[in-house]
Design a protein around this nucleic acid. Structure first.
Lengths: 216, 216
DNA sequence: ACGGAATTGGAACTCCGGTTCCGGTTACGT
DNA sequence: ACGTAACCGGAACCGGAGTTCCAATTCCGT
């Protein structure tokens, strides 16, 4: 959560000062941030969190500012760009997923762990448009937080490998497919289906025996 | 395909004239359209078709105009709004789906028909961003072409009913779920997975025995 | 208590894509 | 061939969302 963006893109702020701090000279110079500033940052983050959950990537900066009872200017003082703010929120969500994936990795019954992982995520997706958008964006390559996504994928890769080894997941699915399926699950849930059933269909599809021979 | 939009929204054109024509007074007065106008309309439609397939809902009017070798003004002469043009294209796609669904309805082996239907659609989605966007938009209620969507859903409902009766599809899935799943499939394919495998996973999930008892 | 650096708010600006407008052009009936 | 209604093109316009700017304000060390 801390220092989520190593260097997204050097904000055009004409920073002529400190070079000794060596980090975090965007987002505000770090050394002794005024108390009210820190307080506002919290308010912004809190408001953004809620708004993002509600509206997803479509949130408007002004909306967030209003909810945080702050001017847009203040918003931009703390986050140089909407992209940065969104990245922060998305990163937060990725962290959640990652720790759940790690929890799954620590479980002996691989398939049960996978089920649990998927159900948990589905449940959250059902009430968090930001999470859905995050997964969608993660698929279409190019987002800012590719790093986070890859960290998650790494976990999933291990999980998938194990599951395929013990035969609980179809041999032919790839990590890419899993990623796409999570993305699809997001869309399906956003599309108004019941998250429980959708997740269960997806899991059944993954669990099922080899591919169907069917052809048009 | 003809007269796709009965009355999307009375374009603000101050039509003070003919009331005897009784139809199609938007899009151009209908009675004796000049030859070059019709020709341009075709060019536009053709260009839009391609552009839509490539870029989906995100196409820009100017882009379409350029591809059609026509000015934006001309574009707007033929389609009062981007929404109208997109609706035309989307409707076209829905028509395709509907006739495939009807083909499925005419098949005796219900499950095979469903498989075929899904695979076909998946294949098209893989190369048609417009189709994907259309399915996505169709889920999030509110689009213009709700009528078309419902016509498709009607077919799917029958198909689902039959399949559940003969036991080839899980009893607990609803029409809404199917719709959401198509939407999810769009997203998953857009997310870069292999359409064949994704479709097969989805089908396996639908086909599989009752839900898994699993729980977090 | 004072001075100045940090911070704030929100009006103003930029950018971008859809939409409108109208002078010039073209097809078609006579 | 001529006149005119239909049609064309694309510059100009408009509104919405992100971003910038700076006078006014607030915190904090001395």
């Amino acid at each position: 959560m801390a220092t989520p963006s190593a260097d997204i893109a050097p904000p055009p702020t004409t920073r002529a000062s400190s070079q000794s701090t060596g980090e975090l000279d965007h987002v505000v110079a770090e050394r002794h941030q005024r108390a009210d500033a820190r307080r506002n940052r919290e308010k912004i983050l809190a408001a953004a969190e809620i708004a993002f959950r509600e509206l997803g990537t479509a949130v408007q900066m002004e909306d967030i500012a209003r909810r945080a009872e702050v001017g847009v200017g203040t918003l931009y003082r703390h986050f140089p760009t909407k992209e940065h703010l969104v990245a922060e929120l998305a990163t937060h969500r990725f962290s959640g997923c990652i720790s759940e994936a790690e929890m799954a990795l620590a479980t002996v019954d691989v398939w049960a762990a996978i089920e649990c992982f998927v159900y948990r995520n589905a449940e959250q997706m059902a009430t968090d448009a930001g999470l859905r958008d995050t997964f969608m964006a993660a698929c279409q390559s190019g987002g800012i937080w590719v790093g986070e996504r890859d960290r998650l994928n790494q976990r999933l890769a291990v999980l998938l490998e194990r599951a395929q080894t013990d035969g609980s997941v179809r041999q032919d699915v790839t990590l890419g497919d899993v990623q796409a399926l999570m993305c699809g699950l997001s869309a399906a849930i956003a599309g108004g289906g019941d998250w429980r059933r959708l997740a269960s269909v997806m899991l059944a599809g993954l669990h099922a025996p080899p591919p169907t021979p069917a052809a048009p």
